[in-house]
Each structure stands twice: as structure tokens, then as C-alpha cells.
């Protein structure tokens, strides 16, 4: 149970789409009958879910493409994890405190196999996977999409 947050995670029925908020409470300013604004809970507007769905479909497409590329041996498994977590080499470099060109090199399978353990550990910690997963090139679903993490 977590308290230190600004929004509680109580489960509430949503009229529009449960999928988006995943149980997070939503508040909106909505007009009442006399035209006066009131802070109303549980109000979600339909087109929001459409565009959100679109964004995630795009991400899913990219993830599948990345998986295929890794399985074909054209890139290292780091590429898959990078894409699955919606990152680019620049962002990975910032998070792991390395220059960008190094991250670029690590996307090459041949070089990735020779990456020192310390660097691998940084990647593993960032993506919340084990060192072994990276070494053996296991492609797990990103931690933001699984339930049993954190």
C-alpha cells in the first residue's frame, strides 16, 4: 500500500473506458445544468481513449519490429529493451551516464557481447531485468506493462 502520492488508486467504475486510467481517479471540470463549473469525478471523454489507443498501437508496432530485428540477429537485445521502454539512444545514454556513441555501439550484437558487466548492470537496473536476461538475450515484456513489478 502506498500513500505518498497525489492521487489515490481506488477502483472506480468509469463510464467511458476502463483501460486508460487503470483505476486511477479522474477529475474534470464539467458544467452542470445551469452552466456553472463543478469539479466532477469519473468523467472521461471518449476521444481521449481513441488517441491513447492509437499511441499505444504505434508503440506495440515498434516493439514487434524491434523483436523481429533482434531475433534476426541484426541488433542486440538492448535495442529491444530500449524500444520497449519508449527510449532512444540519447535517453539511454543520459540514464546510464555514458556517451551516446557508446550506446549506439552497444546496439550492435557483436559489440554488445563484449560489454563489461558493470555497464550491463546499469542497463539491467534501468529496465528492471536481471543481468542474465541481458546476457542470454531473453526478450521480456517491459516492466511498465507487467503487473507483478515494483
Amino acid at each position: 500500500m502506498q500513500h505518498p502520492t497525489s492521487d489515490s488508486t481506488e477502483k472506480i467504475p468509469l463510464p467511458a473506458d476502463q483501460g486508460i486510467t487503470n483505476g486511477l481517479k479522474v477529475m474534470s471540470y464539467v458544467r452542470n445544468d445551469s452552466g456553472k463549473y463543478e469539479l466532477t469525478p469519473d468523467f472521461l471523454w471518449q476521444p481521449v481513449s481513441v488517441v491513447n489507443h492509437q499511441a499505444w498501437e504505434e508503440i506495440a508496432k515498434k516493439i514487434t519490429a524491434a523483436r523481429n530485428k533482434v531475433e534476426a540477429g541484426r541488433v542486440s537485445c538492448l535495442h529491444y529493451y530500449m524500444i520497449a521502454n519508449q527510449m532512444d539512444p540519447g535517453l539511454v545514454a543520459q540514464y546510464t551516464g555514458q556517451p551516446r556513441w557508446k550506446v549506439w555501439l552497444h546496439l550492435v550484437p557483436f559489440i554488445f557481447n563484449r560489454v563489461p558487466a558493470d555497464t550491463l548492470r546499469k542497463y539491467a537496473a534501468m529496465y528492471k531485468i536481471s543481468l542474465d536476461d541481458l546476457r542470454t538475450g531473453r526478450l521480456l515484456a517491459p516492466f511498465t506493462m507487467t503487473n507483478n513489478q515494483e
Binding site: 502520492t5 486508460i20 499511441a55 506493462m145
Partner: peptide
């Protein structure tokens, strides 16, 4: 972690109270 899955993009300007 408490954020809904569908909204976990790399967006860095969220404010919260602890």
C-alpha cells in the same frame, strides 16, 4: 509505479505531493 499503465510515457512534468 502507481500511475496507470496506459499513461506511462516519458513525460517529465508531473507534480505530486508527498
Amino acid at each position: 509505479p502507481y500511475f496507470p499503465k496506459a499513461l506511462r510515457f516519458h513525460f517529465n512534468a508531473h507534480n505530486l505531493v508527498v
